[in-house]
Design a protein around this nucleic acid. Sequence first.
DNA 1: CAGTGGTCTAGACCACACT
DNA 2: GTGTGGTCTAGACCACTGC
Lengths: 264, 264
Amino acid sequence: MPHSSTDHEAPAAEPHGAGAAGSAPAFSPLYQQIKGLILQSLQAGEWKPGAAIPSEMDLAVRYRVSQGTVRKAIDELAAGNLVVRRQGKGTFVATHAEHQVQYRFLRLIPDNGDVNSEGPAQREIIDCRRLRANAEVARALALRSGDAVLQVRRVLSFSGVPTILEDLWLPGAPFKGLTAERLSSYHGTMYALFEVEFGVRMVRAEEHIRAVVPDATQCALLQVTPGTPLLSVERIASTYNQIPMELRRGLYRTDTHHYRNELN
Amino acid sequence: MPHSSTDHEAPAAEPHGAGAAGSAPAFSPLYQQIKGLILQSLQAGEWKPGAAIPSEMDLAVRYRVSQGTVRKAIDELAAGNLVVRRQGKGTFVATHAEHQVQYRFLRLIPDNGDVNSEGPAQREIIDCRRLRANAEVARALALRSGDAVLQVRRVLSFSGVPTILEDLWLPGAPFKGLTAERLSSYHGTMYALFEVEFGVRMVRAEEHIRAVVPDATQCALLQVTPGTPLLSVERIASTYNQIPMELRRGLYRTDTHHYRNELN
DNA sequence: CAGTGGTCTAGACCACACT
DNA sequence: GTGTGGTCTAGACCACTGC
């Protein structure tokens, strides 16, 4: 094998063709392999959220491929919002901790369509406790029943009107040390706090939406009359490697807001 | 100017730099211009839904650019589901008229997650009439109040259970000749019919979701008891050029199904 | 086999940001 | 000016499809 100066990783440079005599081939193009390697570095925390990753040329040298191949790998990462390209500056690890887009996963917007018209949300932590996962929570978080989990309940208000009631469950281990105090005092979104304080970056989520009527407690917290229909939004959010790290159940008032979704 | 054999269009081959002394530059890369030209041909119906568009090489010759540039243009069109690439065969205009993915825009799925477990939906047209657009419908469809529109009401049932009640409004002109008869007798989705019979291909849509309680008529049609919360899904669907061509208001039962959405 | 999309490369140049 | 990502090109080869 030619030249091997400051080796980092070698992509095993096997553009096409079979490897060993395995019965399940499943080859991937070089740029996919590179994408995988970058992804590994991302998970491993080699580059922190908000920081720049090496330039395309540097990565090309490091992985012994052409810049174009690195480019295609990064293109896919950028398409998945894992990374942000900025012309003339570099490519940066995406982060929730930037005031730009406040709630990246929140699809509830005011009926007038202008998110800025109502100012920042007021957040109130109602409860935060450690407990043992029941079967349902355990399944959603890929834990075992009885494992330690953190349960948080909070209310989000817009222009002083309580609009969202959320219950969320987090695996106990990665979030050791999270308290109502820290949640309340942190300035920024929850996901930003998770990133900064616990190194857990939420990357993807899936939501299941239903229409429900709230119980008495929920009515009180959202200040709605019994019988008011609400949106029930169950979200499972995960980090890199698709590992579920949060189960969140939201109740959304839709008298002044609506859930917006784009299809194509 | 060199060689001009069988001219179709010329992209004015102006990769970078300003054109005339206009005060608003706004230049776009070559591949964006090519994308625009392909888009025009798509709208103009030069290539019908389901049919193959010319090969990358052919388009490169036609537009006087390299294959790579055409490729990048097509990549974006494919990313937007306007076109489908099939290795070894060609690139095809996307269509709703293929049994593969039945309802491309329908996000309601059974709670067990398996769309195939319930078989095809039963469709029943309740009503179909021509009338004049009120202010609300006119605004949504970019028409004037009083313009002719078509109003359709239908119920979708899964495994015999009425699950979706939809009211939809279509601009009268492009859909001249649409009747309840044709809607009922057509085998395939509504959007497939629109494509095949009226040349209107729905490409993009935006949905606004709320929780509501149905009125007496709606309860009867969906066979639910008064007070049952339902999902209200308002959709505006549009063709190429972003022109709105359909306003659809759906009421979804979410006792056995849920609206699924992916975030990233 | 020929034709199509898919991958990979290498090099040139442009647009932008910072110093 | 230097370095970054962004565009464009030209050519080679691979993988899949259908004749």
